[in-house]
Design a protein around this nucleic acid. Structure first.
Length: 478
DNA sequence: TTGGGG
């Protein structure tokens, strides 16, 4: 009798709870109390009550049936790795709308299922939920509840416990999280970033993502494959971004292109709005010295709200950023170029690309990643003064082609040089190391140089299409 | 019914 009374006391007032669930949970167990997630897994098929923190927020999408569906990952102390919860509802507004990861969710009458691994299913007929803010607060009432949610006498106490646990175990902190500034090739990591643009073509998707930091400057093969150097691309995508999209890109920090040929269901939301997101289990590599993100079979995309801890952290860092110059060039750019255009302010390449006027002059800090021509035999032709040199300039925000006009060649190279001196200067510019006793080094690492560049147009009728860049007032020092 | 990561 007493046991039954105790059970009754602990049982939330949820009148329509099915008796079969109690039977499934085994005799004598008070099934209608909240269970630690790890314990709930011992009762697959049973309806259970869970009180957990939301660690990942999926996007609401239409199911293959008639409903809308949403997946959250929730965790508690008993299972910090968390478990996936699938919600169904015939209306998006009925799905949980989690404000930030780390918020707390109460789940009543959800069912544990096992399909290779454990899942939690929210059944729209008999399950209910409530969402609470995860940050420490005296506010204990939920900010969203489903219909049929009846709070229990344990809610407040569990909420306080969960908030305390969360304060020491923030859900955003993952050991495999990297920023763009610390990218590494061939490792799998998570990236918290703002998705600025999504491009689709024939089942291939490109996500343009940004976290306010600069990708590391690439090292190139030192043995000059002239063809590879001359054809060094300005960007990885086949079709360059249309100007109206380009102009929405930030002027500081790298916009990383993340490629996939898999359909990512969050893509709909990302195309419609600019979101912060967590790209999970992604990899990266360099192509032509440009970083490229890749979403593989095990990668996922999770939308994050602006209130999410990881996002707030990124935005604070961006707001506090003092250096607009490329991070990799700090503490000081090598002084191999001497710049006349003292009056001009510093401008990133993206700032120039998105400048509202075609024609303008600026001073920038860049690396020369490629040159055309670069073969010694052809470089000699520059000495005749009737050819121009095309340099591929790079900073963390963009690459451009900039021409050293034939009239500016002598100024740029610091006088009329012998062929040998010219080749030596070009090698220095491209970061090609001089041979030493050890033999030819394997990599070249172009130095950062200050450059004056002017932007102009060839055709009045097509100013943007015929836009060119030309280097002026810049001299390569010995 | 639908849908689903370690």
């Amino acid at each position: 009798m007493e046991e039954a009374a105790a059970r009754e006391r602990k049982r939330p007032r949820e009148g329509d709870a099915a008796p079969s669930a109690a039977a499934a949970a085994g005799a004598g167990k008070a099934q209608y109390v909240y269970l630690p997630v790890a314990d709930a897994l011992k009762a697959p098929g049973a309806r259970v009550f869970l009180f957990a923190a939301v660690s990942e927020i999926g996007a609401a999408v239409r199911s293959r049936g008639t409903d809308f569906t949403l997946t959250l990952r929730v965790a508690d102390q008993s299972r910090p790795a968390g478990i996936s919860v699938t919600f169904f509802a015939d209306n998006v507004a009925l799905l949980p709308c989690v404000k930030a990861s780390g918020d707390v969710i109460s789940l009543h009458n959800v069912v544990i299922t096992m399909h290779g691994e454990f899942f939690v299913t929210f059944n729209k007929k008999f399950s209910s939920f409530a969402l609470f803010e995860g940050k420490v607060s005296t506010e204990c009432s939920p900010y969203q509840t489903s219909t049929k949610y009846y709070g229990t006498q344990y809610d407040n106490e569990l909420l306080t416990q969960m908030r305390t646990w969360l304060a020491y175990n923030p859900p955003g902190l993952k050991d495999l999280e990297l920023q763009l500034r610390s990218l590494k090739s061939d490792t799998t990591f998570d990236l918290v970033c703002k998705v600025l643009h999504v491009y689709e073509n024939n089942g291939e998707w490109i996500f343009y993502v940004w976290d306010g930091t600069d990708t590391p400057a690439a090292e190139f093969q030192a043995i000059l494959d002239a063809e590879a150097v001359e054809s060094s691309p300005l960007h990885l995508e086949g079709v360059p971004l249309p100007r109206e999209v380009l102009c929405t890109m930030p002027c500081v920090g790298t916009v990383l292109r993340v490629f996939t040929n898999r359909y990512i269901k969050e893509v709909f939301h990302l195309q419609k709005n600019i979101y912060w997101a967590r790209f999970c289990n992604i990899t990266c590599k360099q192509e032509f010295g440009i970083w490229k993100g890749i979403l593989g079979p095990s990668s996922r995309v999770r939308l994050l709200s602006h209130e999410d801890g990881s996002v707030v952290d990124r935005m604070n860092r961006i707001a506090n950023q003092v250096h607009r110059q490329p991070m990799a060039s700090l503490p000081g750019a090598s002084n191999i170029a001497d710049v006349e255009y003292e009056a001009a302010g510093y401008t990133t390449l993206m700032e120039s690309l998105t400048h509202e006027q075609v024609t303008h002059k600026f001073k920038t800090l860049v690396r020369v990643v490629a040159a055309y021509p670069c073969r010694a035999s052809e470089l000699r032709l520059l000495l005749t003064g009737s050819y121009c040199l095309r340099l591929t300039l790079e900073d963390p925000t963009a690459r451009i082609h900039a021409y050293v006009h034939k009239d500016d060649g002598a100024k740029f190279f610091g006088g009329f040089l012998t062929a040998e001196a010219l080749i030596k200067k070009m090698n220095k510019l491209l970061g090609i190391p001089e041979e030493d006793e050890e033999g030819t080094p394997l990599t070249r690492n172009p130095p950062w140089i200050w450059c004056c560049v002017k932007s102009y147009r060839l055709d009045k009728n097509d100013p943007w299409g015929s836009r060119r860049y030309r280097i002026f007032g810049t001299e390569i020092r010995d």
